[in-house]
Design a binder for these strands. Sequence first.
DNA 1: GCTACAATCCCCGAAAGTGGTGACGGCTGG
DNA 2: CCAGCCGTCACCACTTTCGGGGATTGTAGC
Lengths: 215, 215
Amino acid sequence: MGLRIAIFDDNKNIRESISMLLNTEPDFALVGSFGHVLDCVRDVRESKPDVVLMDIEMPGMTGIEAVKAIKKEFPQVQILMQTVFEDDDRVFDSICAGASGYILKNFLNTKLVDAIRELQYGGSPMSPSVARKVLNKMQSVSSVIMPEEAPDYHLTPREKEVLGCLVNGQSYKMIAAELFISYETVRSHVKKIYEKLHVASLTEVVAKAINQRIV
Amino acid sequence: MGLRIAIFDDNKNIRESISMLLNTEPDFALVGSFGHVLDCVRDVRESKPDVVLMDIEMPGMTGIEAVKAIKKEFPQVQILMQTVFEDDDRVFDSICAGASGYILKNFLNTKLVDAIRELQYGGSPMSPSVARKVLNKMQSVSSVIMPEEAPDYHLTPREKEVLGCLVNGQSYKMIAAELFISYETVRSHVKKIYEKLHVASLTEVVAKAINQRIV
DNA sequence: GCTACAATCCCCGAAAGTGGTGACGGCTGG
DNA sequence: CCAGCCGTCACCACTTTCGGGGATTGTAGC
C-alpha cells in the first residue's frame, strides 16, 4: 500500500516538477494536485491524502489558513510546508496552525522525498536554519509561559481562593456569597492580600496575580 | 582559523570517541573535555569554545542547568545537546535553557560533524523525530500564548492608552495626570471601554485585557 | 453640509472599595 | 499553656468607581 500525497501550489510548473519527483518513488501515490486552496477541505476529503504539500504563499486564502482548516477536519493528515522564504513569523504561524514539516523550495529536488519519508515515520523534517528560527521563537516565548520563578507571597489557601475570585472580576459581595462568608471577611482577606502583594488597589492585585500566575 | 569545541560528558569513552571524531576534521579544535559540569562556567571561560557538546544526563548539576549557566555568561556559545533519550520535556527544557541543537548519541558517529557544521552556519541541527517533539510542544503552548482568536473590540488609540494605564494598576486620577486630561475624561474613556469589552468593573477589564493580550 | 465619531469635559446619586482598628474562636508548635 | 497565625466578623470615615445623563470641539467621510 502506498502513501497518498496531495499538492497545493499555485505554480503549475512546481506542481508538475513535484509530480515527477514523486513518480520516482514506487510507493508514493499522487492523489491530488490543486492550484488554489479555496476548496482545500473538500479537496482533502475527496482525495484522502496521508500527506499534504502546502505552498505557504497562495492566492486567496493563505496556506497557513488552509493548514488550519485542513488540520481541523483531518487532524491525522501530515502537512509539509514549502516556501521560498524563511520568514520567522510565518514559520511560527505554520507550526501553530498544525504543519508538521518545513521545506525550502530551493531544496525540493534533493530533499522532498526524504522529507516525506520522515513525515511517514513520525518525524518533522525541517532545515537546520528553519529549526533555528523555531528554537528562537520558542525561547522568546518560554519567558512568557514560565514567568521566571514566581516569588512566593505566602498567601494562605483562603486568600488564594479570594484572589481567584477577584481575578474573575467578582465583587466583594459576590465573593462573600460564593464562599459563604460575610462581606467584611472578604475585605479582611483582601486587605491581607494587599499587604502581602505590596499593592494598594484591586486592579494592581489582578494584574500582579495574572502576570505572575499566582491565580 | 579553527572552530573551538568543548565536551561535557561523564562517560570517558564517549569523550574519547568524540575526540577522535573531531580530529578527523582539520579545522576543528578540541579545547576542553570535562567529565562533570560543576565548574562548567569556569571551564568555558578558560577554554573559550565556540561550540559546546553537552550531555543531557550528568551527575550533580544536570546538563540543562549547565546550559542555562553557560548561556547566561557566554550567550554567543552554541550548545549542542546529546542524549540517549528523546524525552519530550527535557528536549523542551534544553531549548528554553538555550541549547541550539539536539543530537542522539546513537547517531554521534554519522551526524556529529554535520551537526557541528550546521551550528557553525547558524542552523539548529536536530533529528526529525526531535523536531517533531519540539513542534508538538510548540503547538501545545501556542494556545497559551495566543488565547483563542483575540476578538477585536475596536478600541480607539486613546482607549487603549487608558486601558494600558488601568492594567498597570493606576487610578483614574493618576491616569488623568499621566495623560494630561481631566478625571472626567478618563471616566468617559473607561465607560466606553466597559461597553466595548462587555464588562462592568475594573477588575474584569484588567483580567480580560491581560488574558486576551489587548494591552 | 451633514453625519459619525473620537476626544475632551461636567454633574449627581448610588454603589463599591480602602484604611484603620478591634474582636473572637480554633488550631498548632514550642 | 501561651504565643502566633488563620479565618471569621464588625464599625467608621474616607476615597474611588459606577451608571445615568449632557455638552463641546475637531476631524474624517459621504
